[in-house]
Design a binder for these strands. Sequence first.
RNA 1: GCCCGCCUGGCGGAACGGUAGACGCAGCGGACUUAAAAUCCGCGGCCAACGGCGUGGGGGUUCGAGUCCCCCGGCGGGCACCA
Length: 878
Amino acid sequence: MDDMPPRAAERLRFDFPQEERRWQRAWDERGCFRVADVPAGDRPKYYVLEMFPYPSGKIHMGHVRNYTLGDVVARYRRARGFNVLHPMGWDAFGLPAENAARQRGIHPARWTRDNIATMRAELQRMGLSLDWSREFATCDPAYYGHQQALFLDLLKAGLVDRRESWVNWDPVDGTVLANEQVVDGRGWLSGAPVERKRLSQWFLRITAYARELLSALDGLGRWPERVRTMQARWIGRSEGARLRFALVAPAAGPQGAIDSVEVYTTRPDTLFGMSFLAISPEHPLAAAVASRDQDAAGFIAECRRLGTSEATIEAAEKRGYDTGLRVRHPFDPSCEFPVWIANFVLMDYGTGAIFGCPAHDQRDLDFARRYDLAVVPVVLPPSADPAAFTIDDVAYDGPGTIFNSDFLDGLEVDAAKSAAIARIVELGVGEGVENWRLRDWGVSRQRYWGCPIPIIHCPACGPVPVPSAELPVRLPDDVTFDRPGNPLDHHPTWKHVACPRCGAPAERETDTFDTFVDSSWYFARFCSPGADVPVDPAAARHWLPVDQYVGGIEHAILHLLYARFFTRAMHATGHLSIDEPFAGLFTQGMVTHESYRTSDGSWLYPDEVERRADGTAVRRGSDEPVAVGRVEKMSKSKRNTVDPGAIIDRYGADTARWFVLSDNPPERDIEWTEAGVAGAFRFTQRLAGLAASIAEVAAPAVAPDPLSDAAMALRRQTHRTIAAMTEALDQFAFNVAVARAYELANAISETTAAAPGDAGLGWARREAVETLARLIAPMVPHLAESMMAVLRPDEGALVAEMSWPEADPALTATLSVTVAVQVLGKLRGTIILPPGAGADAAFAAAEAEPNVARALAGKRIVKRIHVPDRIVNFVVAN
RNA sequence: GCCCGCCUGGCGGAACGGUAGACGCAGCGGACUUAAAAUCCGCGGCCAACGGCGUGGGGGUUCGAGUCCCCCGGCGGGCACCA
């Protein structure tokens, strides 16, 4: 940052510290960005929303990019005549606040509120066109109280379950961990080995909407294909069969005798290739076996210790325990197969039991090889020799013809699936089903800093909803973090209440909601943030769905899927009248930066590094060499971050905004470079200078007639730029819009030396620079205001309130076109023609072009191709 | 392992199947200046240069391919014992 631009105001054409504050105040005083919950008038609505931030401390460059993109859309739509809703709030509950409390003794509420104050000030300095009157934080009782009411409505509607499930339990911290919080089988904070534990949890029944959530993806035309695909796979519909395998001898279990095992399969066509049946260690039959078999119990306990962490599962080899039980094949009861407990069978998917067909499933094959089980091929690949076809270490899962399979012999795979299901139904042992990978959403968290679940547990009545008059159930402030576990659970009085139903002593639910619940409906609350119900129906009807949602791809699945589910659930409970919350979704790329390390391996911030002219890097103010690492996502751990606050101090908000928009398409990763920022800064200064120099020259109020050629040429450039930038902004091609703005600025600069006596040109230059100010206003709003204020000092009109420029079709039409002339597809010259010139004229002009004539000399023209205003191509032969 | 992206000058990137490299960054040359910074003007894919070669590599479709199709390679991302 040695080449820092001058800070002295007198050297700035665009004195950003002063000008940016000036316009932010002006917008605020005029209430430019405020809208009513249910607006009067007939302007069409447009709801622009960026994913609201978690108040972690300061804003980072990812926020700058996210909120700049959204602000461009908001300001552009406003200029296009829409009544734009563009709100901001805080996703304020979460674990980091509790960690701060444990580590630094700051109360989570205080920590969160302080961060919000800091970050709000930073966002306001960016000049975002937000309606701050709608701001809320999810930790406001006024917000989470309505969330509690929503939950009770979902409960009434049958969309909530309470049931036991297996969880990752950290015995030291005394809390449930998400799968992502289990690292190598240990708790990420405590380092203690994670246990599998069954716990009663609240579930939201998202699976009730699995089919709709999948099929409605087709209607989300303004969503990235990638996100839709990821969601579709997450929901994971498959078709197959459920069928029961009868045990040869029933097994005695705690809940009575078990006489069969139900299995889910997508490959009923391979049933004759079966060699074993495998159940999950968490399967009830496994528990039944373990109750009288020490070794089985030991095996199950060992599996449990490994936890559910995906990484652990991946590392684990396939292992099993032969229970000694046997099942009969449903198609041939004389055939019996062993029942194994296998560590690779998941209780949560299908029925928690599979039949193993090693020849045609890789996992089954690995298992069979390890335990020396039979491998019977039943699908013959096309044109393979049945006598010679064998399976070694690779299962065959491709197409083919069934063999070794009794009544299925000779059928292709698909036909065999149907025939097998038909037989399963006929025998009364099962049916064809569709199966979903999506599971119900467990929302209970043993944490303090979250929305309390509004339930009271009564020994007599069971779980009882908190009466709506008693909402919100507020978090107590006087909690302590001096021991592990949930502070709500330790609180001396908070949880002890009377049962609302029978009055007997009862206990509050001490779990709080997963914070993804908070973000699943905030977009609806923004429509009427002061309403005394979760959402005001009229406001929601007016504003929803969100027309353009902007955020990071990292939320492609969870947040966006939960919000889609919540919208449907809120429709079912009468709060909303739509099913899809986000009509358009844009996912932006990450902000990246080079990373730097010293020879002892410690990371350095960009500010601590100095680049030498020879390309090497050293620690600032020393000769200590620094290794320049790869360009990667800005992160605190790699210290390759740039603080937006410092950038705005030094260069201004508009420079930061212009830079994040200008360098590459918004969906791609952007590399933050000091040189790029300096370039953006120069542009803001140059435009301000351009506006000032044009303002100094008196120009006629109306266009002289006729205009000089130079004036007409500039006017045409101006109006072509309007058309081009409009198209670019419509398509989120902000980098292209930036390029078009540069072109117009360059064109205006080039007229400086033109004849001073040309009044028409003076008029055209004013038109050009005023138009440019309005065109760049969505991207650099303060600069645009400053330019306009210089150009029209007496009017006091705000660009923020001006309409979008309109291109005059008479001026965007071209007067002449340059047509490329090819011979055999190779460019040989260009000709200039009037637009719409006919083929004959084009051919004649083309053949007359000297370079083309030379290429055609001595050749016979076989074919002439003419694409009007584009190209002429001669196909020749010798 | 499966799925999805992406690959164009020194760099970021433009380009309805129709003049590849718009625009910017960095660079070079010049003007201004005692000098520097800033600013302004100009140049710029590569090569044996009236021509030829060029959008990761190889094939194909087409009058014409960065763009469409097939194969291969590389980079990035997502999912992952999902039966």
